[in-house]
C-alpha cells in the first residue's frame, strides 16, 4: 500500500478511511478471497468473496428457519427425583416477566430472538436484489445501517454460551435433556458466524450505493 502524499480529493469514492484509526487508504479491486487490512491498525477493511451476497442471503434464510424451530421446539428439560420441568426459548425470556423487571424479559427476547431475526430479514431484503445483479430496493441503506448498528445487540451466540454455563451449574442438581431448540440454536450460531465471514461491509455498501 502506497502512501498518499497528495490525495486526489476529487475522487473520494476511491478512498476508504479506517473506522478504527482514521487512516486514509486507496481502495482497490480485490480478487476473491483477498483481504484488505488497515495499514496502521490492521483492522480488516475489505474481504470480498465470490457469491458473498448470495451466501449471506442463503445463510440468513437458514438462520430464520432455524430460529423458527428454536422458538417452537422444546429447549431444555430438567428432571430430578421424578420431578421435571421443561422450558422453551420463549419461556427463558419469560423468566423475567414477573414484577418490575418485566421489561428485561422483552430485552432478553429482543436480544436472543427478535434482533437476530430482524437482521436476517434485513440482510435478505438488502442483499437479495444485489445477489441477482439488480439494483438495491428502496431504503436499503437505512435497513443495512440498522443491521450494522444492531449487530452488537444480537446475542444469540452469547445466549448459547449462557446456556452452557447454566447447564454446568444445574448438572449437579438435576439431569438435563437438551431439546431440538437447543441444537437448532447451536447450528444457528454457526450459521451466523459463517454469514459474518461473508459480509464485507465496504463491499456491500459499495454495491448498495451503485444504483
Amino acid at each position: 500500500m502506497a502512501r498518499v502524499p497528495n490525495p486526489d480529493l476529487g475522487d473520494l469514492r476511491g478512498l476508504i478511511a479506517c473506522p478504527r484509526c482514521d487512516l486514509l487508504h486507496h481502495t482497490q479491486q480485490l480478487s476473491d478471497g483477498e483481504r484488505a487490512k488497515c495499514a496502521r491498525c490492521g483492522s480488516l477493511l475489505i474481504w470480498p468473496r465470490t457469491g458473498a451476497f448470495l451466501h449471506v442471503v442463503a445463510f440468513s434464510f437458514t438462520g430464520m428457519i432455524l430460529m423458527i424451530g428454536a422458538i417452537f421446539f422444546p429447549f431444555l428439560k430438567i428432571s430430578a427425583q421424578g420431578l421435571s420441568h421443561e422450558s422453551s426459548i420463549f419461556g427463558v425470556a419469560m423468566a423475567f416477566s414477573d414484577g418490575w423487571i418485566a421489561p428485561l424479559a422483552l430485552a432478553v427476547l429482543a436480544m436472543i430472538v427478535a434482533l437476530p431475526v430482524f437482521r436476517f430479514a434485513a440482510l435478505i431484503y438488502t442483499l437479495w436484489p444485489l445477489a441477482n445483479g439488480r439494483p438495491a430496493y428502496r431504503h436499503s441503506t437505512t435497513v443495512f445501517r440498522l443491521v450494522e448498528e444492531l449487530q452488537p445487540w444480537a446475542m444469540a451466540e452469547i445466549f448459547i454460551i449462557g446456556t452452557a454455563v447454566a447447564l454446568v451449574k444445574v448438572a449437579g442438581l438435576a439431569s438435563v435433556s437438551l431439546g431440538p431448540a437447543f441444537w437448532a440454536f447451536c447450528v444457528l450460531i454457526i450459521v451466523i458466524a459463517l454469514k459474518n465471514s461473508f459480509m464485507s461491509n465496504w463491499t456491500i455498501w459499495d454495491a448498495i450505493s451503485q444504483k
Partner: peptide
C-alpha cells in the same frame, strides 16, 4: 448456487423435527 443446500437442509431438518 450450491449454497442453497444449506437453508434447504435446515428447512428439511426443521420440518422433519
Amino acid at each position: 448456487s450450491i449454497i442453497w443446500i444449506v437453508p434447504l437442509l435446515a428447512l428439511v431438518v426443521t420440518l422433519g423435527v
